[in-house]
């Protein structure tokens, strides 16, 4: 079943991709092929592969359910928030929340989780910015 859904999604993707490729307008072109045929070729290839999967789907993968599913969604939510707030709140605050939150969710003790979050957030920040000279956000709120 999953494979059939996957195949349909791929067919839609191939169709959409081909449609967008078809719209490409080339004002001038000095070569025989140009930028359009290659994407169309790829779309056709993907469509053929998707049809094969549709006709002969593989066995059902083990999807996460129950606690696992809730955990993955929570992880995804945390990561999206992390991305959203990374620049506004800065590396230290967001990293502390993400590290402590994830560690706690995955079974570390509360104090351990908080200590771990603090370690990655504060000394981590200076290790990455001062010692390794990487570019990380201080946070717009501190300005």
């Amino acid at each position: 079943m999953s494979d059939r859904v996957f195949a349909v999604v791929l067919l839609l993707l191939a169709a959409g991709y081909a449609w967008v490729a078809w719209q490409i307008e080339v004002p001038f072109q000095y070569e025989p092929l140009g930028p359009k045929p290659w994407p169309l070729l790829l779309a056709a290839l993907l469509a053929v592969c998707a049809l094969v999967v549709l006709v002969r789907p593989g066995r059902e993968p083990g999807w996460p359910r129950g606690v696992e599913m809730r955990r993955s969604l929570l992880l995804l939510l945390l990561l999206v928030l992390y991305a959203l707030l990374f620049q506004p709140l800065g590396y230290m605050i967001t990293t502390f929340v993400v590290c402590a939150g994830l560690a706690f969710m995955l079974g570390a003790g509360l104090l351990y989780a908080l200590g771990f979050g603090l370690l990655v957030a504060v000394p981590g920040f200076f290790l990455f910015t001062d010692v390794l000279k990487l570019n990380l956000p201080w946070g717009e709120v501190f300005r």
Binding site: V98, C99, L102, F104, L106, F116
Partner: peptide, 8 residues
Amino acid sequence: AYLIPVIA
């Protein structure tokens, strides 16, 4: 519990 956040 520590490995996953570090990778993230």
